[in-house]
Amino acid sequence: MAHKVASSRAVSPSMISTTSRPRDRLAGRDFCSRSQTSANVPASLEILEERPNALVRLICFPWAGGEAVKDYRALKLSQALPDFVEVVGFRWAGRGRRHAEPSWTGFGWIPGEAQACIAFLTEKPFAFFGHSMGSSAAYEWARWLTLNTSLRPIHLFVSGTVPPQLHVELLKMGVGGLSRDEQCKKIHFLSGTPIAVLKANNYQALKAILPVLSADLDLADTYKDELRSRSDCFPTLTCNITASVGDSDHLNHGNMERWREVTAGSTVFQTFPGRHFYFRERKETFGDLTAAVARTLARETTPASKL
């Protein structure tokens, strides 16, 4: 059983407990370095910094109201990770270069988007990373691939949200009917946008972000209905999972540990100092998170014979 890591200092391997289940590996997968620039990058994905010799790709999904390519580039995620990791951002409909497309209202888009990425995903091992809403998207991608293809992520990194079996119990997420002050507070909490920015200039920032964030919160509510209509028998995944959360986040940390129920692989649960957007609050915390990601991917891309 995974254990909570309660510490305000850097997270080290000795401080992280894992489940006792065997680690999942892709039988026969070639983990050797491949010097190549992909010719199969679909329109929905963008490589933040091309690294032809990378051993693994980390595909990142946006949080509510966010844009993966812009936000992870602003965080300098590629620069924070070693050269054997190539960071890829997923382009969400209704924002960025896909702003002309209708925003998604559920996760029914997963099959089409995933199928368009199959050639890209077969080029080398890949892992998924998501925070908040992005964690749900990453899980749904991993679930669809596991149920419908022979492809598997070598690892699933989730952050700041509960697993799907508990998602149905969350309160309604939308901001409709709230006063402007209440909208500001909720948007600040869910997207990390400073309240001072939201309230400045006659709420211009609020007006700009509200349509995108509202669509994402409506998607979260629709997702609960989609989960209720399914008859999943857990575990649904085989890959290993790391679940992270800020130690001052509103989420029940015991519920975060229940990510272990969705996979037959191992699960790690770790906490970092901070609130919902803990990795944006302090550079040191972001460094601790990326160091943990790098260690995990190094283990996952090391052939079993060399462990």
Rank of each mutant, 00 (worst) to 15 (best):
L213H: 06
S103P: 13
I195K: 10
V168I: 13
L45Y: 14
G96Y: 03
S150G: 11
M173N: 14
L190H: 08
V69I: 09
G274S: 09
F120V: 03
P22R: 00
Q79Y: 09
N252Q: 10
F128W: 02
P52L: 05
D218A: 15
A200L: 06
V88Y: 02
H131T: 10
Y203A: 14
W109N: 08
L213P: 07
Q115R: 12
P164Y: 10
W259V: 04
W92N: 12
R152H: 15
R97N: 14
K186P: 03
L48K: 01
L210D: 08
Q204V: 06
D232Q: 05
F189M: 13
A2D: 01
E123S: 07
P52T: 08
E67G: 10
H250E: 11
K224S: 15
T302G: 03
R73F: 08
S103F: 09
R280Y: 13
A205F: 05
D249S: 10
G108S: 11
S8K: 10
F269N: 04
D288Q: 13
A39F: 03
R25H: 00
R97H: 11
H131N: 07
H167I: 09
R143I: 02
V262A: 02
P194S: 07
E300G: 00
T267S: 11
R21L: 00
E261L: 13
A196D: 12
S229Y: 02
H3A: 15
T161L: 08
D288S: 15
H167K: 12
Y139C: 04
W141N: 04
F107D: 01
S136Y: 02
W104Y: 13
E140Q: 11
A208E: 14
Y203W: 08
L26W: 05
V162S: 12
T301A: 07
E226T: 09
L55R: 12
C184Q: 01
E281L: 08
M256V: 15
L166M: 11
H276S: 04
P42C: 12
I16S: 04
F269A: 09
S135D: 08
T37S: 14
T302P: 01
A304N: 00
G265M: 00
